[in-house]
Computed example of a mutant assay.
Amino acid sequence: MKLPADLQYTESHEWVRLEIDGTVTIGITDHAQEALGDIVYLELPTEGTKIAAGKSLAVIESVKAASDIYAPISGEVLEINEKLADEPGAVNADPYAAWLLKLKPSEQAELASLMSAEAYRQAIGG
């Protein structure tokens, strides 16, 4: 299982990358895509949507189940990965390259509550 050390993680299996400009890029972890199986559909929010940490941010559907993706931090959606509308299976191929969206954080301090790669590995028993 891939687990890049330069990312931060949530207990609900999202990854977060803090960008140089202060925005964050969000996706789901390798562990999550593996548990879901073949991903067939993603419902992402529209640009400009404001979201609170811990609230549903998107819906992901696989051949096994439909699941919510939760906002790791509060903020405003700046960009969505439109390629995933036509190719949701790209998340299975490489969940760290197939990011879901970019967010402008409203509370930078919330980043401190995210887990390191090692803490996430321990949380999932890896």
Results as ranks from 00 to 15, higher is better:
Ser67Pro: 04
Pro45Val: 07
Lys83Trp: 03
Ser67Asn: 14
Thr10Ala: 02
Leu111Glu: 05
Ala52Val: 14
Pro72Arg: 01
Gly48Phe: 10
Asp38Trp: 05
Glu118Arg: 15
Thr10Phe: 01
Leu111Tyr: 05
Gly22Asn: 10
Thr29Asn: 08
Leu7Cys: 06
Ala112Thr: 11
Val77Thr: 04
Ala117Asp: 07
Val63His: 05
Pro88Glu: 09
Ser106Phe: 00
Lys2Met: 06
Ile60Ala: 06
Ala85Phe: 13
Val77Arg: 00
Gly75Arg: 00
Leu103Asp: 04
Leu114Trp: 02
Asp21Val: 07
Ala119Ser: 15
Gly75Phe: 00
Met1Arg: 12
Glu47His: 04
Ser113Asn: 14
Glu61Val: 09
Ile20Cys: 12
Gly37Gln: 13
Val40Ser: 08
Val91Ile: 14
Leu114Pro: 03
Glu107Met: 08
Asn81Phe: 02
Pro45Asn: 10
Ala117Asn: 07
Leu114Gly: 03
Glu82Ile: 09
Val40Gln: 09
Asp30Leu: 09
Gly22Met: 07
Asn81Asp: 03
Leu78Met: 12
Thr49Leu: 14
Lys64Arg: 13
Ile51Gly: 05
Ile20Tyr: 11
Ile51Thr: 10
Lys83Thr: 15
Tyr70Glu: 01
Gly22Ser: 09
Ala123Lys: 11
Ile39Cys: 05
Asp94Gly: 13
Ala58His: 01
Glu82Ser: 14
Ile60Glu: 00
Glu43Pro: 03
Pro4Tyr: 10
His31Glu: 10
Leu18Tyr: 02
Asn81Met: 04
Pro45Arg: 08
Gly89Leu: 09
Lys102Arg: 14
Thr29Gly: 07
Tyr96Trp: 07
Gln122Ser: 11
Arg121Thr: 13
Ser113Leu: 12
Tyr9Met: 01
Ala35Lys: 06
Asp86Ser: 15
Glu76Phe: 02
Leu100Lys: 00
Leu114Asn: 02
Tyr96Ile: 03
Thr25Asp: 00
Val63Ile: 15
Ala112Met: 10
Tyr41Glu: 09
Asp94Cys: 11
Ala109Thr: 10
Ile73Asn: 02
Gln108Ser: 15
Ile124Ala: 10
Val24Ser: 04
Ser67Gly: 07
Pro105Ala: 12
Arg17Pro: 03
Gly126Trp: 12
Leu44Ile: 05
Lys64Gln: 13
Ala65Gly: 10
Glu11Met: 06
His13Ser: 08
Ala71Asn: 01
Ile80Phe: 01
Tyr96Asp: 06
Leu44Ala: 06
Asp30His: 14
Leu84His: 04
Ala97Cys: 08
Leu18Met: 14
Arg17Asp: 07
Pro45Cys: 09
Glu87Leu: 14
Lys64Glu: 15
Leu3Val: 11
Tyr70Val: 00
Ala65Met: 13
Ala66Asn: 03
Ser116Cys: 07
Ile80Asp: 01
Ser12Asp: 15
Lys2Ile: 11
Trp99Met: 02
Lys104Gly: 13
Gly22Ile: 07
Gly37Lys: 09
Tyr41Asn: 07
Gly75Trp: 00
Ile20Lys: 13
Leu44Asp: 02
Lys2Arg: 15
Tyr120Arg: 03
Glu19His: 11
Asp30Gly: 10
Ala90Lys: 06
Ala98Asp: 11
Ala85Ser: 13
Leu100Tyr: 00
Asp86Ala: 15
Lys64Cys: 08
Ile28Asn: 03
Glu47Gln: 09
Val91Lys: 04
